[in-house]
């Protein structure tokens, strides 16, 4: 479980997050929605320790993540698939997966085989350099590399970006099944509110760094004002 309270992050004079509070619970997907510049990516980066908040606390279970180094947050069980997926192009598929498992207690070769079983296309491409993969394959690899360490929390930053609708639908299914089977706490940052709300249990809407709404995904999806003014879901 991740509990964010009163979190503020500034980049110089710009306030990227203002007093953000919310909770994400195990076995559920919490969608973080909002337009470009709403602070969604900053929120994930703060949880992973890549940016230092000015105020507020972030708890992983009962443990505070304040002043914990990014690599240690990862080792505590927080997997973060960054914007652009973070696949290392100069390494092979298998090397990327191996890297994902190194810092965990997982048996590396068993972990890799399990991911190949889950994502057969990665098994077929295991010796290929990641620079040669398609967008969908890269996203699969990024997911597999995050899941291989058997994390408690999965942070996903715009996973659907640049993917065809059909691939996005597949991906969302994969996220949901990983969440349910592993009892993962998933925080899903998306601009594509429609796809995200379809699989999410809870949702938080950010606007200019502040939370403007939060609740169950169904409530958020049903709110006409949110749909129209913040999520861009109402066709004119």
């Amino acid at each position: 479980m991740i509990r964010v309270s009163d979190l503020s992050v500034n980049y110089g004079a710009i306030r990227a997050l203002r007093n953000v509070s919310f909770e994400a619970t195990p076995g559920k997907i919490t969608a973080v929605l909002g337009a470009n510049g709403a602070g969604k990516t900053t929120l994930l980066r703060a949880i992973s320790g890549l940016v230092t908040p000015q105020t507020g606390t972030i708890l992983l279970g009962e443990q505070s993540l304040a002043r914990v180094a990014t690599e240690n947050i990862a080792r505590m069980g927080v997997a973060h698939v960054p914007e652009g997926r973070g696949v290392i192009e100069e390494l092979t598929v298998e090397e990327n997966l191996r890297l994902g498992a190194l810092a965990s207690k997982v048996n590396i070769s068993e972990g890799i085989e399990a991911q190949y079983a889950q994502f057969p296309v990665l098994g077929d491409r295991r010796r290929k350099y990641c620079g040669t993969l398609s967008g969908g394959e890269r996203q699969m690899l990024a997911m597999a590399r995050a899941l291989i360490a058997r994390p408690k929390v999965l942070l996903l930053d715009e996973p659907s970006l640049g993917l065809a609708p059909q691939v996005t639908a597949e991906l969302m299914k994969t996220i949901l099944s990983a969440c349910e089977s592993e009892n993962l706490t998933v925080i899903l940052v998306e601009q594509n509110a429609k796809s995200a709300l379809r699989i999410s249990h809870d949702a938080v809407v950010l606007h200019l760094g502040a939370v403007v709404a939060s609740g169950s995904a169904a409530e958020v999806a049903a709110d006409e004002d949110l749909r129209r003014y913040y999520l861009g879901l109402v066709e004119e």
């Binding site: 992973s48 690599e71 990862a74 290392i88 100069e90 890297l99 190194l102 810092a103 360490a149």
Partner: peptide, 16 residues
Amino acid sequence: RASALAPEVARLLGVR
């Protein structure tokens, strides 16, 4: 290699 190629990603994967 990972630290040299993509330090931030390496950190996110727990590499010191």
